[in-house]
Design a protein around this nucleic acid. Structure first.
Length: 411
DNA sequence: ACGACAGTACTATCCACATATGTAA
DNA sequence: TTTTACATATGTGGATAGTACTGTC
């Protein structure tokens, strides 16, 4: 018998709702999340069948058990035999899916005895969706079953802070900036779920368009201090380019006038939540690529929930997202030991893989280009045909040594 | 282990001028 | 309040100098 439903306290909890920070049985899940359109958008996931605390992250086909990243690591990370177990990532869902739709979301759905039973009892007669709107149902468009889904709604208040001081912890009141209205808000706290080709994070450039924080002179001078605790456990991993790259953003944003999103978002959580934030970031495989390689438009995002926090570092633009996805740093995280785990002898088996991943990541980083955005095409057109002397524009009629049009010299 | 050196990578700066933006009449 | 005239700020790309980083001895 697992843990009881947070709502009725009677049935066994089977799903976890991030938005409500609650573990619910299927019946209560449906009752609670069919209340209104907003609650229907809450993303839920299976509950880890081992710890019964965290949302499940993968399904082990061999053991037929759903596990959060922590438990997955404990179960599969350290043992060469168990690490070969076939696993698939677990989708989130929203709306009020029927048993059939659960099956479509989770191909292993019927393999879960408690789910199957509960579903027969509780959902068997239910319609797919009260309003017949299938869009309520996750997975969202373009996402396959084995992928993962986005969290479309997080209730956690998000605070921005700016300045040179360290992340405000207890007693330090962060400077709260107004969040820009519109879709950006909705996009901001999206989580990255592993295994998803199209992360969906900030797919719309408008997010950043609306989120210009030039006036916010954010500097993360003290990032070592900020993340010191986390780094103490993950130094080995991140010294290979992780946080170093992440905080290159500081320098870049300082020098690039058009830099947007020089912002940071911090959770309401306690200082102790910082470590959890880092851990959860990785437990959610929080877009490691963007996390590691955020360079042009950094957003440090912490969203907190009691003992569990989620972190997302996102510098992904629409154009770069694919590139980031291809970056191998994510595999570095997924293949190696969790960053919060101290190095142990067993981990040596993964060190080679990790080294390879790091090497590939560095290669990728080398070749990656951050394209300049031209704001005024007319000016560009003019500059393109301007004559120059040693790269400098010259007055019309003056002698020049370079003519972009004819590639000739006037002398 | 440490310093010197060479090679590489990256950034800031310069230029003229069309255009955007702000201010006053 | 709207229009007009003027002043100032901005942003384009290529070359180059300067700085930072990396690898070798």
């Amino acid at each position: 018998m697992g843990y009881l439903c947070d709502f009725c306290g009677d049935q066994r909890s089977l799903v976890y709702c991030r938005s409500d920070a609650a573990c619910l049985c299927l019946s209560c899940d449906r009752n609670v999340h069919s209340a209104n359109a907003l609650s229907r958008r809450h993303s839920r996931n299976l509950l880890c069948e081992r710890c019964n605390l965290q949302p499940a992250f993968v399904r082990c086909d061999e053991e037929k058990i759903s596990l959060c990243q922590n438990c997955d690591w404990l179960a599969h990370g350290s043992s060469p035999t168990s690490s070969t177990h076939k696993r698939q990532t677990i989708n989130c869902y929203s709306g009020c899916p029927s048993a059939a739709e659960f099956s479509s979301i989770w191909s292993f759905f019927l393999d879960i005895p408690s789910m199957g039973e509960a579903c027969e009892q509780e959902l068997g007669l239910m319609s797919i969706n009260e309003n017949g709107n299938k869009s309520d149902l996750v997975p969202p468009e373009g996402q396959n079953v084995s992928g993962s889904a986005q969290v479309t709604d997080l209730p956690t208040k998000v605070k921005f802070w700016a300045g040179t001081s360290s992340i405000p912890v207890s007693g330090s009141e962060p400077r709260i900036l107004d969040q820009p209205p519109g879709p950006g808000n909705e996009c901001m706290p999206k989580l990255y779920c592993p295994g998803k080709k199209n992360s969906g994070i900030c797919e719309d450039d408008n997010l950043y368009d609306d989120f210009i924080m030039d006036e916010v002179d954010l500097e993360l001078e003290n990032y070592e201090e900020l993340f010191g605790m986390a780094l103490s456990h993950s130094e080995e991993l991140f010294e290979n380019g992780g946080f170093e790259s992440l905080f290159e953003a500081k320098d870049m944003s300082a020098s690039v006038g058009e830099s947007h999103c020089q912002g940071a978002v911090v959770a309401e959580g306690s200082s102790a939540g910082l470590v959890n934030a880092i851990q959860s970031a990785c437990s959610n495989a929080a877009s490691a690529d963007s996390m590691l390689s955020t360079k042009t438009e950094p957003i440090v995002c912490f969203t907190g929930r009691q003992s569990q926090s989620n972190i997302s570092f996102s510098g992904v633009t629409k154009e770069s997202a694919g590139d980031y996805q291809d970056c191998d740093a994510s595999s570095m995280l997924l293949m190696g030991e969790p960053p919060w785990c101290p190095p142990c002898p067993e981990s040596s088996l993964h060190s080679a893989n990790r080294s390879n991943a790091v090497m590939r990541y560095k290669e990728k980083k080398k070749t990656r280009k951050f394209e300049k955005k031209v704001r005024y095409a007319s000016r560009k057109a003019r500059a393109d045909v301007r004559r120059r002397v040693k790269g400098r524009f010259v007055k019309a009629g003056d002698v020049y040594d370079y003519d972009p049009l004819s590639q000739t010299r006037s002398f």
